[in-house]
Design a protein around this nucleic acid. Structure first.
Lengths: 202, 202
DNA sequence: GTCTATAGGTTGATAGAC
DNA sequence: GTCTATCAACCTATAGAC
């Protein structure tokens, strides 16, 4: 009942396994991930992993949740009451102009996991929900902007999907190509779009 | 010397292997691709594959070229002289409103390959070039539009990156989520953006 | 060029001791 | 909960016959 002791999702051992999986994925990528390679990053044996997870698939599903949690923590967005700034804020969280190493790594791992969504239904459901939540966040901001008169009477859903697709695509390009300034260029153009197409002329 | 017999990139046997690899990737995804699984889709033995390709890696690099060729064939764009329509044309090629099964499959395979670009330099260089060519195509159209007065004096490079990111992101979402109408919504909003932000008011 | 057979290594997973 | 030792299955790759 106390305010601390928040229901733990991961025991200490499990969290160590998740972190080792994270490091192994960074080093080898999803296609070359194996239990042995996770063990290489972990101060435990293979059998220890199988004590906590029945199969490799179970471990991967758990890791997907772990990575998604981390992702959604980093974009947790305390939303203000200035729609244009709120949108900028969300975009900066999703597609930082100058991402630090931690952000780049998490995105790289997520892209590896997300590609599995093509053939794995559990993964696809997770990423469907992620995009659903992100689109809803943007849509809500646009709706508020329309109500308070900051934004034109656009279709909030369409605009939200446009923004989400651009941000996702720019991030995708950032981790799968060497086109260093492409993501920033897309972001600048997106901001200018929001300003000119969304914002009501005064 | 004759106009036919264009330098063949793939022998008959090699093309059969590439097509079998394609089918195996569709069925199992990149992470679970093996020579045996390619053989399952092929009327040849494992040894036959190793006669044509020294290692699995060599085969995968060859397949990457094969898939990229197919992709660039499908978007080969006979460009007209009406910039707004040319852009619409390119976008429809990259992100069809109603993709047929063949288009969906090729995109699914490409997303699987592209995720390898995160950890594999050869793959990353290929996708860097693909995006470079696509961005250049869009940029050229925008530049022509500015010159002939159809478009406003926007930054062609930024706008091109914006369009490419949106299209890539919407395609990415299409093959990795179940959000069926998201891609179409993004495309409609993108078209409206091009019309309102790019097109010069008359 | 393609085959069968096989070598040698790694994989996911388990048994049994502590 | 974690360990070592082990297994069968599968993997990439090659040898040698045709």
């Amino acid at each position: 009942m106390a305010s601390d002791s928040p229901k733990q999702r991961w025991s200490t051992a499990e969290e160590e396994i998740m972190k080792a999986t994270y490091r192994a994925l960074l080093r080898h990528g999803y296609a070359d991930l194996s239990i042995s390679r996770i063990t290489d990053e972990l101060d435990k044996s293979k059998a220890a992993i199988y004590y906590h997870y029945d199969t490799k698939d179970d471990l991967l599903v758990a890791f997907l949740e772990f990575a998604v949690d981390r992702f959604e923590e980093t974009i947790e967005t305390e939303t203000g009451d200035e729609p244009p700034e709120d949108i900028e804020h969300v975009i900066e969280k999703l597609l930082p102009l100058q991402p630090d190493e931690e952000q780049r790594q998490l995105q790289a791992v997520l892209v590896g996991l997300r590609s599995q969504a093509v053939t794995n239904e559990v993964f696809r459901e997770q990423f469907t929900q992620i995009d659903e939540r992100l689109a809803a966040t943007v849509r809500n901001i646009v709706e508020r902007g329309i109500e308070d008169g900051t934004f034109r009477d656009v279709d909030p859903s369409r605009v939200a999907e446009h923004i989400l697709a651009t941000v996702n695509g720019a991030m995708y390009g950032r981790v799968t190509t060497d086109r260093k300034s492409a993501a920033a260029a897309a972001r600048v153009s997106l901001a200018s779009y929001i300003d000119s197409e969304l914002r009501r002329r005064s």
